[in-house]
């Protein structure tokens, strides 16, 4: 596997997790391509124009995108789930268009010169985020999020602040997408707004749907398959949207929870009894 493919796979896994984290609270985001763009450009500006340290730039871009995401998602999160889908689609367009019209970052021509990302950075981050998600998957918080996903209103009546949980998850997902964007721009050297169009957001969501929405491994499987397979099978690349679309449709009909549909349990009562 080439360095580039390894890198792309890693970025797509991070992006898929960024969607998964938002999905943990039951919200679907089509804005993660936009947050990736925010991170890519912000980190680029920080390192190239402000001379900031690479890691500090990534962290700042991530935190910034998280705050922006939380502020923008708040009005939609108070209402029904469908509204959030609309708002996130809107965000994707707004972010892309704003970048296209900002001469400071090169507008439609794009920005160039970012360097510093290696596969070690990408896969190191995957290890860290993966460990975090695994930790989460065994926690009380995961149990509460699972309850929110199953029945928001009942979960709220048990005392869970559902809006707060959703906002934090949304901000965390936006943050991870932005950091992935920062890594992306400092690997690609050159970026332009077209790299982050609405299709990026859509594809990432579909990676997660394909792999499975109920555990942290699903997004990894979905993103890996859809990144690596078209490269390995000659001729498949040009039919990617067609094949991908058909696979998603069939999968939703026969396995609506994705390939890895299993939900991980947060506790086992019996093991505790025998102990």
């Amino acid at each position: 596997m080439s360095q580039d493919l390894l890198f792309l796979t890693g970025i797509n896994i991070l992006m898929a997790w960024s969607v998964y984290i938002i999905l943990l609270s039951g919200s679907l985001s089509f804005a993660n391509g936009g947050f990736m763009a925010l991170g890519a450009y912000a980190a680029g500006v920080f390192t190239m124009k402000w001379g900031m340290n690479f890691y500090a730039a990534l962290a700042l871009a991530g935190v910034g995108a998280g705050i922006v995401g939380a502020l923008l998602a708040y009005p939609a999160l108070r209402t029904r789930g469908v509204y959030l889908i609309l708002v996130t689609i809107g965000l994707s367009f707004i972010i892309q268009t704003l970048i296209q019209n900002t001469d400071y970052v090169g507008g439609v021509r794009g920005m160039t010169g970012m360097m510093g990302t290696t596969n070690w950075h990408v896969w190191g981050l995957i290890a860290i985020v993966g460990a975090g998600l695994y930790w989460l998957s065994r926690s009380h918080l995961q149990r509460q999020l699972d309850a929110v996903r199953e029945d928001e209103r009942v979960a709220a009546s048990l005392g869970f602040d559902v809006v707060y949980l959703k906002i934090v998850c949304f901000a965390a997902g936006a943050c991870l997408a932005a950091i992935a964007g920062g890594l992306y721009s400092h690997y690609m050297v050159f970026i332009n707004p077209d790299h982050f169009n609405i299709f990026v957001s859509i594809y990432v969501v579909l990676y997660v749907v394909l792999g499975g929405v109920n555990n942290l491994w699903g997004p990894v499987v979905g993103a890996s398959i859809m990144t690596i397979l078209p490269e390995l099978v000659r001729g498949l690349a040009s039919f990617r949207p067609l094949v991908f679309g058909a696979v998603i449709i069939v999968l939703l009909l026969v396995r609506p929870n994705g390939l890895l549909a299993m939900r991980l349990r947060t506790l086992k009562a019996d093991r505790e009894r025998s102990a």
Binding site: L28, G81, V82, I85, I202, V205, L206, V209, P241, L242, F244, G245, A246, I248, I249, L252, L253, P256
Partner: peptide, 14 residues
Amino acid sequence: QVTAALSSLAVGLI
């Protein structure tokens, strides 16, 4: 509702 919406999105891609 969301599952069906995603499926229609995939139809659109095709």
